[in-house]
Structures are given as structure tokens and as C-alpha cells.
């Protein structure tokens, strides 16, 4: 398919389990389309060159930086954003709950990206040595917390989840 500059084409974007028909220009970033076309403003934009990690979403199971992807590339992909984390009844995801308990956020700007980055790895976190966990979380800038709360939160999320399961 050849798309001219300025021309809009309709793509099917699967975001948080809902398929949207979205008209996009070829150069529109996934981060912009999520925020401004779909109104999913939980995905934040910190640098637009892939360095800070704020805009991290999950694309087909893997964390990815939404500012480094064009929306037009993503027909057929499964995109998950921070808005998908809490349960339908509103209960916070164990990761979200853990960030709250461990003061893993201050201004909250990097938080959605931190959560989506940690989602595929938090089940393994309790077994990881501190340096390994910090290394797994690196590439994600938080300018407020000094990271200790984030490290503690990711490490403790699986336990919170297991506790909830046991209570059911």
C-alpha cells in the first residue's frame, strides 16, 4: 500500500480488546493516535525519541514505546494501555495497588509507562536479585521517586496478587 503525505487511511487498531477503525496519516505516531484520536490520555509522551519510556504500552505481549511506532504499522497487533490494567469492576491491578502502597509514584507522569513495562516481568520479580531487577527496570526514567518505591512496588506486586487469590 502506498500512502501519500497528508493522506488519511483507515486502519483497524485493537486497543484494550476493542477494535477501532481509525483514520490516520502515515506519519502519525501511535502515542498521538492513542491520546488524541482515541482519547486514551493515560499514555504519556516524555521525549518522542524512545529514551524516557513514559509512552510504554504493550504491543502483542511485549512492552513497546508508542512514540517509536506509527499507528499505520499496527493493524492486527494487540495493543494494551494503562487504561486496561484495572479490573472491569474498578479494582486496581496488583501492580497498581503495589505502586500505591510503596509510594512508587509522585507526579504520576511516568507511572503508566512504568506499569506497562513492569507488567510482563512482575511475576518473576520476587526471585530477582536487586541489581537484576533494577537492570530490568532501567530504560524507564522516573524523575521524582529516586526509583526505590518503584523497585519495591514491582517486587511486591506478585505477593499482593497471590494474597488476593488466596482470599477468594
Amino acid at each position: 500500500m502506498r500512502v501519500s503525505p497528508g493522506e488519511q487511511v483507515t486502519v483497524k487498531l485493537s486497543v484494550n480488546g476493542i477494535v477501532h477503525d481509525v483514520a490516520v496519516e502515515s506519519r502519525w505516531l501511535l502515542s498521538d493516535v492513542l491520546r488524541h484520536q482515541l482519547g486514551l490520555t493515560g499514555t504519556h509522551v516524555g521525549c518522542e525519541n524512545g529514551a524516557c519510556g513514559c509512552c510504554t504500552v504493550i504491543v502483542s505481549g511485549q512492552p513497546a514505546r508508542a512514540c517509536l511506532l506509527f499507528a499505520i504499522q499496527l493493524e492486527g497487533a494487540e495493543i494494551e494501555t494503562v487504561e486496561s490494567l484495572a479490573a472491569p469492576d474498578g479494582e486496581l491491578h496488583p501492580l497498581q495497588e503495589s505502586f500505591r502502597r510503596h509510594h512508587g509514584l509522585q507526579c504520576g507522569f511516568c507511572t503508566p509507562g512504568q506499569l506497562m513495562n513492569a507488567k510482563p516481568l512482575y511475576r518473576q520479580a520476587p526471585e530477582m536479585p536487586d541489581c537484576e531487577l533494577r537492570s530490568a527496570l532501567s530504560g524507564m526514567i522516573c524523575r521524582c521517586t529516586g526509583y526505590q518505591g518503584i523497585v519495591d512496588a514491582v517486587r511486591d506486586a506478585a505477593r499482593i496478587e497471590d494474597e488476593r487469590e488466596d482470599a477468594k
Binding site: 486514551l40 490520555t41 509522551v45 490494567l85 486496581l92 505502586f99 500505591r100 509514584l105
Partner: peptide, 21 residues
């Protein structure tokens, strides 16, 4: 005491300037 700000920020429901349309 846990923060009253956290719930909206964790859900991606904060309101930063660029979130206002």
C-alpha cells in the same frame, strides 16, 4: 497515610495539560 492523588494517576486518569481537549 497513602496518597489521595494516586488512584487517578495509577489508572491513567490524571489531567495533565496535554490531556485537556
Amino acid at each position: 497515610i497513602q496518597r489521595r492523588e494516586d488512584d487517578r494517576l495509577l489508572r491513567g486518569e490524571g489531567t495533565f495539560v496535554d490531556d485537556i481537549a
